[in-house]
Simulated assay, not measured.
Amino acid sequence: MPPPVVLHLTGSATDPFLADLSLIYARGAWAALGEQYEMRAAHVTPDGLWCFPDDLSDPALKAAEPIEVTDAVHHLTTIRPKTILPQMFCLPGMTTYRSLLDVLRLPYLGNTGPVMALAADKAHTRAIVAAAEVAVPPAELLTPATPPTLEPPVVVKPVDGDNSLGVTLVHDQSEYATALDQAFTCSSRVLVETYIEAGREVRCGVLEQDGELICLPLEEYALNQPIRSHADKLRRNEAGELIFSAKTADRSWIVEEADPVTAPVWEAARRSHRALGCRHYSLFDFRIDPDGRPWFLEAGLYCSFAPQSVIPAMAAAAGTALPELFATMLRQIG
């Protein structure tokens, strides 16, 4: 029997930077899982064209013939993959392209387009998890015509931004104008949140297994400054290649299950997963105040199944290797 076909949906319809990020993760998953599955690729370029390269190497991508979306749709339906791995991180890639897969009735791992759209809007996400009795910092939503009323210190962030772009900690009123200008360059709406004094910052992954929600070991991030910046997450090396800043032992580590913060974060993560309508898996960021109380920051509802991806790293710490994790997730889609 031939191995199951796994199709990686990569690239970006809008942003070369996010296209590079997509390829980093997808190449990692391809290398880690390629021996067990027949790997295929579909790639979307920033001009909206598609191609179906033989692999995800630069030569293969350059050699692949670009085609229009109508032809790509026909080609997708002939591949018949066991699953598609959406590896796109731009907003259309996380939403519209996933919804296209639903229209075509093609199976894919991860959350649906509408759920991804919900999680991409930090204001909507906050409201929903707060209704599920998850603690969120006091906040207000601004447009360019709306002045802020919250007293600093506050965190100013684009409502639909990612990777900490446009995020600023405002210490006093004099810093508001610059922070708002930076955030509004990234989004037409800005969220201003009361700053939670730094105790700790952790991420929690949740897996669906046979109808149960399994929480993974927490990953904690070093707080060398009051808030994590874009440079703390991603940067380019001297060769211009995109690399991860936080994937070193001094910047992030796994939290012991016996740690007092684990149980309350797990409970908040399960509530958030259910409230947002997540499926297969989810990932949430929490700020832990000096009293040990977790505060919801945001949802990151994607997983590339690359070794450097957060959920596989958490699963590995719990004793589940990446191939076993992926096989378990495949069983969730039949």
Results as ranks from 00 to 15, higher is better:
4 P>F: 02
5 V>K: 13
5 V>D: 11
6 V>L: 12
6 V>G: 04
16 P>H: 01
21 L>G: 13
25 Y>E: 01
26 A>H: 09
29 A>Y: 06
36 Q>T: 12
37 Y>N: 05
41 A>D: 10
45 T>Q: 06
47 D>R: 14
49 L>R: 11
50 W>E: 07
69 V>R: 12
72 A>F: 01
82 K>E: 12
83 T>R: 13
83 T>Y: 05
83 T>S: 14
93 G>R: 03
96 T>A: 15
97 Y>H: 15
104 L>E: 15
120 A>V: 06
121 D>S: 08
130 A>S: 13
130 A>L: 11
135 A>W: 07
141 L>T: 06
142 L>H: 09
146 T>L: 11
159 V>P: 05
164 S>H: 12
167 V>Y: 01
169 L>Y: 03
171 H>D: 07
180 L>R: 02
213 L>I: 10
222 A>P: 14
223 L>W: 05
223 L>D: 03
226 P>Y: 02
228 R>N: 10
237 N>F: 04
244 F>W: 00
249 A>P: 09
251 R>Q: 12
253 W>M: 06
256 E>T: 11
260 P>R: 11
261 V>Y: 09
263 A>R: 13
269 A>S: 14
277 G>R: 15
283 L>E: 08
287 R>I: 10
295 W>K: 05
307 P>R: 00
312 P>D: 09
313 A>H: 05
317 A>P: 00
318 A>P: 00
318 A>N: 00
319 G>R: 09
323 P>M: 04
328 T>H: 13
330 L>Y: 03
331 R>W: 05
332 Q>A: 11
332 Q>K: 06
